[in-house]
């Protein structure tokens, strides 16, 4: 009697199933020992076992070379500000905002600013500039409010519909994807935005498809979220209109703006509210919409 026959006699399901279970580590020690003894005794069973062992796939060195496109930047820029004291953080925010927006304007400005396709309305950043007026940007290229194309409610470009009286901006509509795909359905705003551990953003869902958000700066001294409506806060975010998703904050958002800019517009608003002075900078292209608001700390509150 061969080893295989002996083993067959012990297990009516046949040797293949047992060899498979041996390979998978599914046999008890005793069963494995018996089968290995049978394999030892029988050349044919030994060959079967050898062939079974070859069916285990060996990992191949396949490398995905485009990892960098998947990597998301951590929000170092925002955290950086939290290292500063109050006045310094505000000053730094202003400097950064101006440094990034004016060169962008100069670099990408167009002679046809009125053709912008996003429907950015005149902003009303809560507590900043209910009576805001535009500052003149270089060469006075800013369009007036009337020059901004009116919102198309059904367009993916619908982005910055101001929620009346609340000074908040709605994010673009997040479309339903494959109905079978429960992962990407009705993505809430929270999922679009990376909140750093210390927290500097809050989100107010309005409807399942329409979300608003407000961002603020972490106050290093108080160690807590500073809402936009308070002093010494900074908000800045960028949205990829075509992709209908948030790009990021601060440097990350700007760093992503590498596509050719078309119809770029920059609007800078200055608050006339002496109790809550600040700047609001809006940068928009066909593809992106960015906004930065800087709230200045009133002199009498400064350290």
């Amino acid at each position: 009697m061969t080893g295989e026959e002996r083993f067959k006699n012990q297990n009516p399901q046949g040797p293949e199933w047992d060899l498979f279970n041996l390979l998978e580590g599914e046999l008890s020690d005793k069963e494995a020992e018996a089968l290995l003894a049978a394999i030892e005794d029988d050349d044919e069973l030994g060959r079967e076992w050898e062939q079974f062992q070859h069916t285990v796939l060996k990992p191949e060195a396949i490398v995905y070379h485009n990892k960098s496109s998947l990597i998301k930047e951590e929000k170092a820029g925002i955290i950086l500000f939290s290292w500063f004291s109050k006045p310094l953080s505000v000053a730094a925010a202003i400097v950064v905002a101006l440094l990034i927006s004016v060169p962008l304007y100069n670099l990408f400005k167009t002679n046809n600013p009125g053709t912008i396709t996003s429907n950015v309305e005149h902003s009303n950043p809560g507590g900043v500039n209910d009576s805001a007026s535009e500052l003149k940007t270089p060469e006075n290229q800013n369009p007036t409010e009337k020059e901004w194309i009116q919102p198309d409610q059904n367009s993916v470009h619908t982005l910055a519909k101001k929620q009346s009286g609340k000074g908040r901006f709605n994010l673009p509509v997040i479309p339903d994807s494959n109905p079978k795909d429960s992962v990407n359905r009705l993505v809430p705003a929270e999922d679009l935005i990376d909140m750093p551990e210390r927290g500097f953003a809050s989100f107010i869902p309005l409807t399942p498809k329409e979300n608003s958000m407000e961002l603020g700066l972490v106050n290093n001294e108080l160690g807590e979220f500073v809402p936009r409506t308070q002093k010494n806060s900074l908000e800045f975010y960028a949205v990829n209109i075509k992709e209908k998703g948030l790009v990021g904050f601060m440097g990350e958002g700007l760093a992503t703006l590498t596509d050719p800019f078309k119809n770029l517009n920059v609007k800078i608003h200055k608050s006339k509210d002496k109790k809550d002075p600040g700047l609001r900078i809006e940068v928009s292209t066909e593809q992106y919409y960015m906004v930065a608001s800087v709230h200045l700390l009133p002199k009498n509150d400064r350290n």
């Binding site: 293949e16 199933w17 498979f20 390979l23 998978e24 079967e48 062939q51 079974f52 070859h54 069916t55």
Partner: peptide, 13 residues
């Protein structure tokens, strides 16, 4: 997995 290994083994054999 069993059927896959069975097939692969037969393929090799």
């Amino acid at each position: 997995i069993f059927r896959a290994r069975q097939f692969l083994k037969k393929y090799l054999k």
